[in-house]
């Protein structure tokens, strides 16, 4: 990766999102859920979007799928997918792409699957809608094959069972089978393992990586778990209050993080692979309001390194320079950030 995104107009990425903004009108005011996101994603690549609740990570994925159409949300910017701007497509043009070119895996497979239809019915439906000419029996055979590929034992029998007859892990496998049944080029996985136990999570992450290699799909994995992105992601975008605050390769994020919020995340997490620290170092305070975010840098009220006098953290809005190879939305000069990371944040094992 040279720069975060190439110079204007030259992107040949599978997905290129430019200055994406999603706002919702509410009684209390305008919620700026996503506020100017820019990133690229190539075929076969995995982007991890990391953030806490309210950071805008899930809204981003729904905007890419066009799921905000017909609601009161306003989506601006552009979402280029194979050279076409998804935001400018007619509803019908976008519908045809959903599930075929871009598919989604949701957090809780129990509520994301319809309780009244068999798993097979729902996956066959996902296949048939984009393969109208295929016969029912051929579609069914294809789905059985797909269930087998995602590791569901005895698929001939399981295809006719209902979601509630599946265990949590098997349900998420079925959900993955449904998402991948049309061989999509982009898969968005929104917290795909958050509802699962850790031993099942390990199975599911393995499965996703295997299938990605097989199909050469691009994956966006949305999660709050830094461990999951460490395992899955090639690049990582850290979001805070609807904005990207740091972007880079997985190595950059973990071994030379430069944003104080990323530092906060790395330090506040207890580590399973390390001897216990005396104390965790939490990020003080609470996530920002999306209706009236703090002035200047949205993170400044919680930032241990803020310097209002010299840097203007509470007044100047920092930029996210997408022409940088490791963009960081922070007013602290880069050399100083690197020095802070090296002396205070880096731990012996990283």
């Amino acid at each position: 990766m040279s720069t975060w995104v190439p110079t204007e107009g030259t992107s040949e990425a599978l997905l290129s999102v430019r200055d994406l903004k999603v706002t919702f009108p509410t009684e209390d005011g305008l919620v700026k859920a996503v506020d100017g996101l820019t990133f690229d994603l190539n075929a076969g690549e995995t982007l991890g979007i990391v953030g806490e609740s309210g950071s805008g990570k899930s809204v981003t994925s729904q905007a890419i799928m066009g799921l905000h159409r017909g609601t009161r949300a306003k989506v601006e910017g552009s979402i280029g997918f194979e050279g076409r701007d998804l935001l400018k497509l007619e509803d019908e043009e976008l519908r045809v792409m959903r599930g075929r070119d871009i598919a989604m895996i949701f957090q809780d497979p129990l509520s994301a699957l319809h309780p009244y239809y068999t798993v097979g019915n729902q996956i066959v439906e996902a296949y048939k809608i984009h393969h109208g000419k295929t016969s029912k029996s051929a579609a069914r055979a294809h789905v059985i094959d797909m269930l087998e590929r995602v590791g569901i034992p005895n698929p001939q029998k399981r295809i006719d069972q209902y979601p509630h007859e599946f265990s949590g892990g098997m349900r998420q496998r079925a959900m993955i089978a449904m998402a991948l049944v049309n061989n999509p080029r982009l898969v968005i996985a929104d917290e795909p393992t958050t509802a699962l136990d850790v031993t099942v999570q390990a199975q599911i992450l393995d499965l996703l990586m295997d299938l990605q290699k097989e199909m050469n799909s691009a994956i966006i994995i949305i999660t709050h778990d830094l461990g999951v992105v460490a395992e899955m992601a090639d690049k990582i975008m850290v979001m805070y209050g609807g904005k990207a605050v740091e972007g880079g390769t997985a190595d950059q994020t973990f071994y030379s993080a430069e944003h104080p919020y990323t530092w906060g995340l790395l330090q506040s997490m207890p580590r399973i692979d390390r001897e216990r620290l005396e104390r965790l170092q939490p990020i003080p305070g609470n996530p920002p309001s999306l209706i009236s975010p703090p002035s200047g840098c949205a993170f400044h009220p919680r930032c241990a390194y803020r310097d209002d006098e010299n840097l203007g953290c509470s007044t100047i809005v920092p930029e996210f320079d997408v022409q940088d190879w490791h963009p960081v939305r922070c007013l602290i000069p880069a050399p100083k950030r690197k020095a802070i990371f090296d002396t205070e944040i880096r731990t012996p094992s990283s």
Binding site: G169, V198, Q201, A230, D251, F254, Y255, S349
Partner: peptide, 26 residues
């Protein structure tokens, strides 16, 4: 198996790890 299943927030370490996968369901 339980410990080996937890992903570690450290990509280099994570890539080198060998996972003990549990088969089947509870």
């Amino acid at each position: 198996a339980l410990l080996s299943a937890v992903p570690i927030p450290d990509p280099r370490k994570e890539n080198k790890r060998e996972r003990i996968l549990l088969k089947g369901d509870l």
